[in-house]
Amino acid sequence: MSGDNILEVQNLKVDIPVTAGMLHPVRGVSFTVARGETLCIVGESGCGKSLTSLALMGLLPKTAIRTADRMDFLGQDIRDFKERRMAALRGVKMAMIFQEPMTSLNPAYTIGNQLMEVYRRHISKNGSEARARAIFLLEKVGISAAASRLSQYPHQLSGGLRQRVMIAMSLMCGPDLIIADEPTTALDVTIQAQILHLLAELQDEFEMGMILITHDLGVVARVADQVQVMYAGTTVEEGPCQAVFDNPLHPYTAGLLRCIPVPGKAKRGSKLGSVPGIVPNLVGDLQGCMFRNRCAHASSICETLSGEPTRIDDGHAFTCRLTPEEAAKTAAVQGVA
């Protein structure tokens, strides 16, 4: 693999024991993130995007079991890292921005306190240094009167501002990897674009790797280098953004892309879930292609499909019984329909 990769993940699985048996919400996903590169993970609600990112951060719920063939971050195998060593990476080498800006900041402490604490924990105890860094970053994320904001409490800020604060907070220690889990889902449509634009800009400026989880395919088209399409805990298609958008091969990807809006006209129809049918239950032993009950091209082979991806050129791969040629044809037909 190229030396530029800051994160290499192979066959990541998350299992959660539930009353009905063992839930398999993430069932073997693999990806790499290079420095300065954006990987977008898309897929409908419940397909395991959040659990994948929490698994990387070591923040899974206590009951969840994580396994992987490989999980190298900055050249270190972090699979067996205990909480202590993970905590030493979190916030400083890898940072995360969450879906819920309204509740992700502690209501009892000022913005300044919460921004500075992560810097003091990992970089330096020096208060004025931390303060200067906080002000610098608040300005970077487009917050005016940054110095006076430091003494404000979260409840005094709007959702958009809070998410900007969260972004500033994630950058306090200059991380190598930033994971943004649907950072704009809870925000106004008008603010969503600003925040995503800001993230892309900052990522470029600070040369970070970024994993951006989003429902918004319009955004993916604009900011992603690599795209990973998830369905029911597996990757159904992955590849360079251009290749996936120009030549979607998996029927699910094709279905998602059918309703992509013209850039600039943010149609609500761009949201995922436009593919008819429901996601199968992920409890117990699972066999074959999970998409088969919603797929127009399903056949009996799909029930026993191994899940090995079909690789095309340039890292573009998809997991389906169809050959690339058949897939391209059906996708094109779907596109017209």
Partner: peptide
């Protein structure tokens, strides 16, 4: 179980800080 405790953990804060500063206070 709140989101801000998850944030505190995502910041790599020490268990003491998470428990006393962020959780107990609230």
């Amino acid at each position: 179980a709140s989101d801000y405790i998850r944030t505190a953990r995502a910041k790599g804060l020490s268990p003491t800080s998470i428990l006393f500063k962020h959780a107990l206070r609230n």
